[in-house]
């Protein structure tokens, strides 16, 4: 990493960490929203960006995680943050089960299947499946998270929780990217046939990407449930999947910094455009088109693998 770049990253991180000191509750909450979508988008980035699997139903996994957390918390009084690994696991397993029979489909067919899965999950939630999801009302009365004896309730407290998770995710996913696993996914994305020819078990890697990405969405779901204290099916509609899809592609599929930047723009811009009142989504749509036209490969395109022999040796593991 070049010194200049390192400096910029450190500066940005410090600026972000200090943000609650000079921003008001609303602005901090916008950052919270951005962080949450950042987490979701980083998970989707594994599936869509790194492995190149068209997934436009990410909200389904997000919903499974959020509902797992909410049900465990409201029915069995398990502290909400403790449900984090479990909701990740549930969402990941759900993704594996769903993806298993369809993961071999070609791009656009997979796209509609994931859209379908997203809709089926939402409809199931609305229809109060298993009598546990509360139908259209959703689940309410989810307790506030506690960390080291502190109850997290105010926007700036959530800010550190959410962005702490984002930081951890960045760290983990950067490591993953450098690993044999990450390179196999990229190979898959660039040329599936060649990847298979070089002995990569494509089905295994595709499923692994799906499971891991979905698990991240599940955990983000827990954070969402904890923050809102009420969840309902409409928070997990098709539009959420579309937004996440746009974030990953706009950011530059496969580039972590790009995806985060895009989360800032896609979630932040509609807030910024509040001054336009009824016209704010119009301006937003226009900006999306213009950004794509001027940065067709995304804001920060993923660069093809440049790996030093050292990292390669480490990844061989």
């Amino acid at each position: 990493m070049k010194h200049g770049k390192l400096f910029a990253v450190v500066l940005l991180a410090a600026l972000l960490a200090a943000a609650p000191l000079f921003l008001n509750a609303y602005q901090v909450d916008v950052l919270n929203s951005i962080g949450l979508y950042g987490l979701l988008a980083l998970g989707l980035n594994l599936i869509l960006g790194e492995a190149g699997l068209f997934n436009m139903g990410h909200a389904a996994f997000y919903a499974v995680g959020a509902y797992t957390a909410a049900i465990l918390n409201t029915r069995y009084q398990i502290p909400i943050l403790w449900t984090l690994p479990l909701s990740g696991l549930t969402a990941g397993l759900f993704a594996l089960v769903v993806a298993r029979p369809v993961v071999h489909l070609r791009g656009d067919y997979l796209l509609i299947v994931t859209i379908g899965v997203g809709e089926i999950v939402r409809i199931a939630l609305v229809n109060d499946i298993f009598g546990m999801t509360g139908g259209a009302n959703g689940i309410f009365g989810i307790s506030r998270p506690q960390l080291f004896g502190i109850v997290i309730r105010r926007p700036w407290e959530f800010f550190y929780l959410i962005w702490g998770c984002v930081a951890l995710t960045i760290f983990l996913f950067l490591r993953l990217k450098q690993s044999r696993f990450g390179r196999a996914l990229n190979y898959l994305r660039e040329d599936e046939v060649a990847a298979e020819g070089s002995g990569i078990n494509t089905a295994y890697y595709k499923l692994a990407a799906f499971g891991l990405g979905a698990a991240w969405a599940g955990m983000a779901g827990t954070l969402f449930a904890a923050k809102m204290t009420i969840i309902s099916p409409e928070s997990f509609n098709f539009w959420e999947s579309v937004v996440l899809f746009m974030i990953v592609i706009l950011g530059g599929a496969g580039n972590i910094a790009g995806v985060l930047l895009a989360a800032f723009l896609v979630i932040g811009l509609p807030e910024l455009f509040r001054e336009f009142a009824s016209a704010r989504m119009l301006v937003f749509g226009l900006v999306m088109v213009v950004m794509m036209v001027f940065r067709p490969r995304g804001l920060l395109p993923a660069r093809g693998g440049r790996f030093s022999p050292v990292t390669l040796a480490r990844g061989r593991g």
């Binding site: 509750a25 609303y26 909450d29 916008v30 929203s33 926007p155 809102m228 009420i230 309902s232 409409e234 928070s235 807030e271 509040r274």
Partner: peptide, 10 residues
């Protein structure tokens, strides 16, 4: 709901 919570914060 999500947009509403931001609108309320604002």
């Amino acid at each position: 709901p999500r947009t509403a919570s931001l609108a309320a914060q604002r």
